[in-house]
Design a protein around this nucleic acid. Structure first.
Lengths: 218, 218
DNA sequence: GCAGTATTTCAACGAGCGTTGAATACTAGT
DNA sequence: ACTAGTATTCAACGCTCGTTGAAATACTGC
């Protein structure tokens, strides 16, 4: 249980409650009344602070996305700046893409885990998932793919985009924290073990990129 | 638009309509009335053929899962049987895991695409996704991981399970057909281009498995 | 202490929700 | 034609939904 009804402003309490519930049950799976019950505030306050349920959802998304894009872009620029004559490696670029996210999860799991779960659901939602993810993340992603293209010279663009697609799926399922790997592995692996993920994810993904994007032309 | 109200039995028409709508908007995002409107049948017929909305959802899942598990197990046994003295390669095993699914999508896209989208959503649903996926697929997945363990002798089990986790994320996002890669790539790649996926997915994933599961002990 | 604004409470609206029971139509077998 | 079972229609139940308007309160600067 998360402790609500602190001294936070009402608007933030609503956003926190909405973030958690939307993450777990989706936009349609949660009612405004349930959100406001969790935020410990009257139903109609939702419509004082936000225009509609949809607007509340949008504000939940927007609250954190800009910060995420900033720190990931800084991480990319950092690894690029570290190389003056040559290009960064695939591993370094993918690390810049994934590590800032994992670091936030380590620093403040309560704050970020629900948001990541929400992103995971949206990324895999056939309804409007593609459009939403593109709107919020594609400018950043294009920068990363550009860098990867330089690190893997002569790659077929389609190979690069499909590689990123596989990366995106692996990353967001990891953030969904569904507990399935806990069941499957009989406890050997845990969804919430960020250190274990941090050791492995970039290794797996960089190998995929390298092999798919460096194969001989077909 | 899919053509409903054919000469199919009512129960199947309901399942078809429910499958499509659940896939696109999730369990809570669709009402029984909407399903029955699409199935071109009276609302109460849903409760003649099924016990409840939840039961209808379960039957949608169960209708196809057994067949999927059968053909994928056969594909695995086929590649194992092809090797009498040695073990199948990682590529062959992953191909047995993914190719039957892709083949069905090629053979009858109308029939399978909504079901795959539903699986994609469930796999990334923090609420009950982990439990559902484990229930339906883990017996089969364990067989594949066993085979992969033989193909990658001496692997750390945690590396194997995490590798499968990344595979699962990449596979289900691909099945979600969200159209995001269409946006991102500016049309270079298309979510529905199964041939392009079939060329690339097993290459990317097998490289990930090999590299992560064969690295020196840390 | 008062004006004015920002926030919160209360009560209600029409609509759609999941679900049910009773009445009707259809399809065999005798 | 009668019956028995299966399939379908119709009307309705209590409930929750998203949203709104007006009244009440709390807060802020003068």
């Amino acid at each position: 249980m998360s402790q609500e009804s602190q001294d936070k402003p009402t608007r933030e309490r609503i956003l926190d409650a909405a973030e958690e519930l939307f993450a777990q049950r989706g936009f349609e799976g949660v009612s405004v009344r349930q959100i406001m019950r969790k935020a410990d505030a009257d139903v109609s306050l939702a419509y004082y602070h936000f225009k509609s349920k949809q607007d509340l959802f949008d504000q939940v998304m927007l609250r954190r996305v800009e910060f995420l894009n900033e720190i990931r872009l800084e991480a990319l620029e950092e690894v690029v700046g570290r190389h003056v004559d040559d290009e960064p490696t695939v591993e370094e670029i993918i690390g810049a893409f994934t590590r800032p996210l994992l670091q936030l999860l380590v620093d403040d799991h309560e704050k970020w885990s629900y948001y990541y779960q929400l992103i995971a659901q949206i990324n895999n939602s056939p309804d409007r998932g593609g459009a939403l993810m593109s709107r919020y993340f594609d400018p950043l992603v294009s920068r990363f793919i550009e860098a990867l293209n330089k690190a893997l010279p002569g790659s077929d663009p389609a190979d690069l985009y499909w590689s990123y697609h596989f990366l995106s799926g692996a990353l967001t399922l990891t953030f969904a924290e569904t507990g399935r790997i806990d069941n499957l592995s009989g406890g050997v692996c845990r969804s919430t073990n960020i250190a274990a993920i941090n050791e492995r994810m970039h290794v797996f993904l960089a190998a995929g990129f390298r092999t798919l994007c460096s194969r001989p032309d077909s």
